[in-house]
Design a protein around this nucleic acid. Structure first.
Length: 189
DNA sequence: AGTGAGATGGCCT
DNA sequence: GGCCATCTCACTA
C-alpha cells in the first residue's frame, strides 16, 4: 500500500484534515506486528491565528518544536499528565499547523478501542518517542497509507473542536471533521 | 442523557 | 500556581 508522500501534507491544514479521513494510520511496533486503523475523526489547528493552537501568536517552546518541522512529521504531546495526543504536522516550516487525529476505526487488531485521541495513542503505543518522526520517510515505522478507500465529501461532517472552550470564539470554528454516522468516533457531533 | 470529580504531571505565565 | 486538544467512573433522573 502506498504511503502518503510529503506533498499530501504540505497543503492547507483544513484540506489535509479532510483528506486524512479514510486513510490508514500504521505503526510497526515489532518486526512482525503492524498496528492499523482507519482515520474517522480529526481536528485542524491553524497556527499563529488560532487561539486554540499551541503555536498561537508564534509561541515556540520546547514542547511544540515538532510543529515547526515541515508537513508530514508527527507531533506528540502529553495532556492532563496522563494521555498522549497524536498530530500530523501540515504545510511548511514557516507555518506551524497540525491535524489532531481523534479516532480510528480498528483494522488490526480488530476490536481495539480507538475512539479518542488518548485511547488511540495508548493502543498504538504512540508516546513522546514518536514526536518529530517523519511519516513519509520510507524507513519510518510510523506512516499513513491510502488503501483506495475513498470518503466522499457528502460523507464528511464538520463540527466544533472538543476541549478548547478556553479559546473563546475559536472554540466554535468548524474545524472538527468526522465520517458521517461512523460508530467509531469519540463522540457524536 | 447529562453532570461532576479525580487521576496525574508537564508546561506556561 | 493554575491550566490543560482526556478518560473513566459515580451520581442524578
Amino acid at each position: 500500500m502506498p504511503r502518503l508522500d510529503q506533498a499530501f501534507y504540505a497543503r492547507k491544514t483544513a484540506t489535509v484534515a479532510k483528506a486524512l479521513l479514510g486513510k490508514v494510520l500504521c505503526h510497526q511496533i515489532s518486526p512482525k506486528k503492524i498496528m492499523r486503523g482507519r482515520i474517522v475523526e480529526v481536528e485542524a489547528y491553524l497556527g499563529f491565528e488560532d487561539p486554540a493552537c499551541h503555536t498561537f501568536k508564534g509561541r515556540k517552546t520546547e514542547r511544540v518544536r515538532s510543529m515547526y518541522l515541515s508537513g508530514g512529521h508527527a507531533y506528540l504531546f502529553i495532556i492532563y499528565g496522563i494521555h498522549y495526543c497524536f498530530n500530523v504536522v501540515t504545510r511548511s516550516e514557516k507555518y506551524p499547523e497540525a491535524v489532531l487525529v481523534r479516532a480510528l476505526e480498528p483494522i488490526d487488531p480488530p476490536n481495539s478501542s480507538l475512539n479518542g485521541p488518548g485511547k488511540l495513542s495508548k493502543a498504538f503505543l504512540l508516546t513522546k518517542k514518536q514526536d518529530g518522526l517523519s511519516l513519509f520517510d520510507p524507513k519510518s515505522k510510523l506512516w499513513i497509507e491510502d488503501d483506495g478507500h475513498h470518503v466522499p465529501k457528502s460523507q464528511i461532517v464538520s463540527a466544533s473542536r472538543i476541549g478548547v472552550d478556553y479559546a473563546g470564539a475559536a472554540a466554535k470554528w468548524p474545524l472538527r471533521f468526522l465520517v458521517k454516522n461512523s460508530p467509531h468516533v469519540s463522540r457524536k457531533p
